[in-house]
C-alpha cells in the first residue's frame, strides 16, 4: 500500500501527491513511512522561498515566475501558505486565483496550505510537502508565504534561495521587513516599481545591506550570498557582492526574468562555491531540532507523563523535592 503510494508519487500521479500532502498537513502519523521512503529520491529540486508583506504582489510574481520557468522547460510546483483564522480555525486560501492559468498545465502543481494556528507546525508540514513534490519530479519548487515576521521566515528558511518582496507605499515601507528578516534574503525584489517611492525603497534596502556588511552583522546566509556573487555571474552586480535588489512590475511581467536569472545565478553560485551543502546542512539541523522539540512536546502531553508532571509539581511545592530532581525524574519517565 505504502509502496504503491511512493510509486504513484514518483510517477507524478496527482492524486497520490495531493493525498499524501493532505495526510502530512493533517499530521497523520501513518505518513512517516512514506516520507521516509521518499527521502532518498529528493534533493534534485531547487527550492525557492518567496515572502513579503500582504499586498506586495507575491502571487502575481509567482505566477509570472512559473510562466517563465515553464518556457525554460522546467516543471514547477508551488506551495502557497496563508494564515488560518485564529478564531474559527478556518481559512480562505486565495493565492491560486492569480495562478489558475497554470491549473491545466501538467507540468505545474499548485497547493495551498493554511497555517492551522501554529506556524511551527506548518513549517514542518511544508518541509515534508516539498519533499513529496521533489520526489515527484518537480524541478523548481516555490514556497510562497505572506508576512514578514520570524515565523513566516521559518517557513521559507528551508529554501535554497530566498526572495524577499517589498513594495512602495506600504506606510513604513521596509521597516516591516527589517527585524531579523532582512539578513536572510538572497534576492530582493521591489515590486510595483512604477509607483512613487520605488527608488527610495531600493536605496533603503541597499543601505541596510551595506550597513550589515560594514558592521559585520551579516549572518551566514547573506555571507553565503556574498561568496555566491563572486562565484556566479548573473546573480548580483553589486561591487561588494551583496544580494541584488531588483525592480519589478509583476502585473506586466517587467523584471520577472531578471528575478529568475538572479535566483538561478544564486543557485549556481551556491553549487560552485560548495555552499549548497552548507546551507542544506544548516536547514536540516534546524529541522532536526524542531522535529525533536515537537516529539518532546507531544511526549509531555502523554497521559501518564501529564499525571506524573502534576504529581511531581505537587512534591516540589510541598518541598518534598527540588525542581531539578523532579525534572530528572520526568526525563527518566519519558525514556
Amino acid at each position: 500500500m505504502s509502496d504503491d503510494i511512493v510509486a504513484g508519487i514518483r510517477s507524478g500521479d496527482v492524486r497520490a501527491i495531493a493525498r499524501t500532502i493532505s495526510r502530512i498537513d493533517n499530521g497523520d502519523p501513518g505518513i512517516v513511512g512514506i516520507v521516509k521512503a521518499l527521502h532518498v529520491h529528493t534533493g534534485e529540486a531547487h527550492v525557492i522561498g518567496i515572502t513579503g508583506p500582504p499586498g506586495s504582489g507575491k502571487s502575481t510574481l509567482v505566477d509570472k515566475l512559473v510562466r517563465s520557468y515553464r518556457r525554460d522547460g522546467f516543471t514547477v510546483a508551488v506551495v502557497a501558505v496563508d494564515p488560518s483564522s485564529p478564531f474559527t480555525g478556518g481559512a480562505i486560501l486565495g493565492d491560486r486565483i492569480r495562478m489558475q492559468a497554470h491549473a491545466t498545465d501538467e507540468g505545474v502543481f499548485i497547493r495551498s496550505l493554511a497555517t492551522r494556528g501554529h506556524l511551527g507546525g506548518v513549517s514542518r508540514a511544508t518541509i515534508d510537502t516539498v519533499r513529496v513534490l521533489d520526489a515527484a519530479g518537480y524541478r523548481r519548487i516555490i514556497i510562497e508565504t505572506v508576512g514578514v515576521g520570524q515565523s513566516e521566515v521559518d517557513i521559507v528558511r528551508l529554501a535554497d534561495t530566498i526572495v524577499l518582496v517589498s513594495v512602495p507605499g506600504l506606510g513604513d515601507d521596509i521597516q516591516a521587513i527589517k527585524a531579523g528578516v532582512m539578513e536572510i534574503g538572497d534576492v530582493f525584489v521591489v515590486n510595483k516599481s512604477d509607483r512613487d517611492g520605488a527608488d527610495r525603497v531600493v536605496r533603503e534596502i541597499k543601505g541596510m545591506l551595506e550597513t550589515a556588511l560594514v558592521n559585520g552583522t551579516t549572518p551566514p546566509f547573506a555571507l553565503a550570498g556574498h561568496g555566491v556573487a563572486k562565484a556566479a555571474a548573473g546573480y548580483s552586480d553589486d561591487p561588494h557582492g551583496l544580494p541584488p535588489v531588483i525592480k519589478t512590475i509583476a502585473e506586466t511581467g517587467e523584471g520577472v526574468d531578471s528575478v529568475k536569472k538572479a535566483i538561478e545565478g544564486h543557485r549556481a553560485g551556491l553549487d560552485q562555491a560548495g555552499l549548497l551543502r552548507a546551507r542544506r546542512l544548516a536547514n536540516v539541523e534546524h529541522e532536526l531540532r524542531s522535529v525533536v522539540t515537537d516529539r518532546l512536546t507531544a511526549l509531555l502531553e502523554r497521559d501518564d507523563i501529564r499525571s506524573r508532571t502534576k504529581m511531581l509539581s505537587a512534591e516540589v511545592v510541598d518541598r518534598a523535592r527540588d525542581p531539578h530532581d523532579a525534572a530528572d525524574d520526568l526525563m527518566a519517565a519519558m525514556g
Binding site: T88, A91, R96
Partner: peptide, 15 residues
Amino acid sequence: ARALRDAGMEVIYTG
C-alpha cells in the same frame, strides 16, 4: 466562502 471559513473549513477560492 467566508461562511465556510467561519465554520472552520479551509476554502480554496479560484475566482
